[in-house]
């Protein structure tokens, strides 16, 4: 049962907010041997995954323009502002006062933002225009069983009970 438990804790620690920690309900009445160790500060998914905790922000994806890159609506992404965007990076860019998720293409002087979905055209940047990149996407949290990766806290609590 301790492997299940390993998934239950980090989800609560992904955000700096105070989220209550619930131990995994033990189905057959055995006390979980992991319970004594759940507060180990080294066991923190956030610090394990994110090289730059100060500049890494989580966002929920609402659009479907990057499904070809396995980023689906409802997924969580981690965006790092400290990384220098390069050709091929998936980035959050600022376009017309909005944030948009696209793949950055830099070919010589030509800069474009490419969707990973045929329904969306590639956006070529006019020469001389300044592209503002908010941050570089470093991780995607996506659940395999077909539901959105991260349910809301309330949903999570209900499941944990």
């Amino acid at each position: 049962m301790s492997t299940l438990f390993a998934y239950a804790i980090p989800a609560a620690q992904l955000l700096p907010a105070e989220l209550p920690l619930y131990g995994c309900p033990v189905p057959a009445g055995f006390p979980s041997p992991a319970d004594d160790h759940q507060q180990d500060p080294a066991f923190d998914l956030k610090s394990h995954l994110f090289r730059n905790p100060a500049s890494t922000f989580l966002a929920r994806v609402t659009g479907d323009s990057m499904t070809g890159a396995e980023i689906h609506p409802g997924d969580l992404i981690a965006v790092d502002r400290a990384l220098v965007p390069r050709d091929g990076h998936i980035v959050v860019a600022v376009l017309d006062g909005e944030h948009t998720l696209k793949r950055l293409r830099i070919r010589g002087m030509r800069v474009s933002l490419e969707a990973a979905n045929d329904l969306y055209p590639t956006l070529e940047l006019l020469s001389g225009a300044q592209l503002e990149v908010w941050g570089v996407v470093t991780h995607v949290v996506h659940a395999l069983e077909g539901r959105p990766a991260a349910q809301s806290l309330n949903e999570w609590r209900l499941r944990a009970r």
Binding site: P16, F57, T62, G63, T100, L101, S152, L153
Partner: peptide, 14 residues
């Protein structure tokens, strides 16, 4: 929204 500290109000990107 509490963009960085709440699952319900998390920053959304299209």
């Amino acid at each position: 929204p509490a963009y960085t500290t709440s699952w319900e109000e998390l920053w959304q990107v299209k």
